[in-house]
């Protein structure tokens, strides 16, 4: 039984996941019975009533109202059960408990960012306390994205220009993957993230450490921190660091090189150019590349930008 469950469904890691699963099995179970039943009847008829001679005559049977009613009403009752049940679980998924812990989520091509009450920020990794309802208040900076955590059986579109909400309660510490499930362009399938569920205490520590957000951890050199940031902020989804071809120009050997632009102008890559490219990506478009990068204005602070520039300088 468990083997079948694991084959079809991911682990159930939220308090409501089991409810969804019960319905999942109910509908699939009854469908399977119906399918087997109907196919068996057809196979039986095809065999039993196979044509035995060319001038066979068939009886005239035009309709049967009792049968019509039966096979309308029984399925109707079944689907009404599925409807009511589905709606009930959905309401449980929708109505947020009052004491939920709130985290803000911002989606943009192609990263997930999370902002916490005390100014802490994280990118790609959503940190939450275990065994406590968490409410996500989500919105997008560009196109529609969708926040999907299979382990929680939850999904919610993240729309520009408005807020959408979703909530869950993960009883056990652990990790679960986040997918973007609304098509959003070239990096859509790389727009992954992770929910990290901590024990309450561990979570408080994490939160305290990151209060105010965005300053360099003591034990890292600027370029090491820059490398970390480039990962976290998903720069490396589009920019390779080893010269390979991706959506954006590679960073390898970039610093100090000659850059050609779509409008025919050129520039030698220095700190100012890199800074401008991070804050105003569309000011100069590199020849042969699409203008798809978003601004990081208001997201990366100066200290972080400096660290990333330091990192790029190391990529000879």
């Amino acid at each position: 039984m468990d083997a079948i469950k694991d084959f079809f469904l991911p682990p159930a890691k939220s308090t409501l996941a089991e409810q969804t699963d019960a319905l999942f099995w109910f509908v699939h179970g009854s469908s399977l019975i119906l399918t087997i039943g109907l196919i068996a009847v057809i196979v039986y008829f095809v065999y039993k009533y196979r044509r035995k001679s060319e001038d066979e005559v068939t009886p005239l049977i035009t309709h049967n109202n009792a049968l019509e009613v039966t096979w309308s009403v029984i399925p109707l009752v079944l689907v009404l059960i599925v409807f009511g049940w589905g709606y009930q679980v959905f309401m449980n998924q929708t109505v947020v408990p009052d004491d939920a812990y709130e985290v803000n989520v911002t989606a943009q091509k192609w990263i997930w960012q999370f902002q916490y009450e005390n100014g802490a920020q994280s990118t790609g990794k959503l940190h939450v306390p275990a065994d406590r309802p968490v409410k996500l208040i989500m919105s997008s900076k560009d196109v529609i994205h969708s926040f999907f955590v299979p382990d929680y059986r939850l999904k919610q579109d993240v729309v520009p220009g408005r807020y959408t909400e979703m909530w869950f309660n993960a009883p056990e510490p652990g990790e679960s993957i986040i997918f973007c499930t609304e098509y959003c362009g070239d990096g859509h399938s790389d727009m992954l993230g992770e929910v990290i569920v901590h024990e309450e205490e561990e979570f408080e520590n994490w939160l305290a450490e990151n209060a105010g957000g965005g300053s360099k951890p003591e034990d890292l050199a600027p370029e090491e921190w820059g490398e970390q940031l480039a990962q976290e902020w998903a720069c490396t989804t589009c920019h390779s660091t080893d010269g390979s071809q991706m959506t954006g120009p590679t960073w390898q050997g970039k610093f100090g090189s000659e850059q050609n632009f779509e409008d025919g102008s050129t520039v030698t890559v220095d700190e100012n150019y890199l800074r401008e490219s991070i804050l105003e990506p569309n000011a100069k478009i590199v020849e042969g590349y699409p203008a798809v990068m978003n601004t990081y204005q208001g997201q990366l602070n100066d200290e972080q930008i400096n660290a990333i520039i330091e990192y790029i300088k190391t990529l000879k």
Binding site: Q19, I39, F83, W85, G86, R153, K155
Partner: peptide, 28 residues
């Protein structure tokens, strides 16, 4: 008869998707 079986599966999985809670998980 091919139609019968395949369309039956397609239709019944449509019922699965019509159920809101399940669609939240399975959509897209």
């Amino acid at each position: 008869f091919g139609f019968f079986f395949l369309f039956l599966v397609g239709g019944l999985t449509g019922i699965v998707l019509g159920s809101i809670a399940l669609d939240v998980h399975l959509h897209d």
